[in-house]
């Protein structure tokens, strides 16, 4: 079977598994999985682990960012300071944080907590390399 035909079949099967209703899915799993209780237990563990790991990654990234911003404010590095000012200006609820010199760790967390941390770290590290 050529790749073209195989790919179309696989696309269709993926569409099926994404869309099929929960009752039909539950019936299929009973046929597919030899020990459904063991499967459900493993799945519960994975969900817990996945969410816990994601939270840890997020917290690690947040602390890394706070540290970078604190250092940038002390050294008056243009780009990070400009980024913080932009976040503050873009959100009315952050107006009280206008004075960057007086920002605590918790204040910086409040300013950046809704941003994409991975993207921010990348931008700041690229800027550091250019310095």
């Amino acid at each position: 079977m050529s790749n073209n035909i195989k790919n179309r079949i696989d696309d269709a099967l993926i569409a099926f598994y994404k869309e099929v209703d929960k009752d039909a899915l539950a019936d299929m799993l009973k046929d597919d999985v030899s020990d459904i209780d063991a499967y459900n237990k493993k799945k519960k563990q994975l969900v817990f682990l996945a969410r816990a790991k994601a939270q840890k990654e997020r917290n690690d990234n947040l602390l890394k960012l706070v540290s970078k911003f604190q250092q940038a404010i002390e050294a008056n590095i243009e780009k990070p300071v400009a980024m913080l000012k932009q976040f503050i200006q873009g959100n009315a609820s952050l107006a009280l944080y206008r004075n960057l010199d007086k920002l605590s760790k918790e204040d910086i967390i409040e300013i950046i907590k809704d941003q994409n941390f991975v993207q921010l770290i990348e931008e700041l590290e690229n800027d550091e390399k250019r310095q």
Binding site: Y17, L25, L29, D32, V47, R51, E57, R58
Partner: peptide
């Protein structure tokens, strides 16, 4: 587009069932 928020909000249980069923049959 934040992974942490996404994992908290989606029905991860349901998604894992669908992915497992696909993987089994594939």
């Amino acid at each position: 587009m934040n992974l942490y928020d996404e994992l908290q909000s989606i029905d991860l249980d349901d998604l894992l069932d669908r992915l497992t069923s696909y993987a089994t049959n594939r």
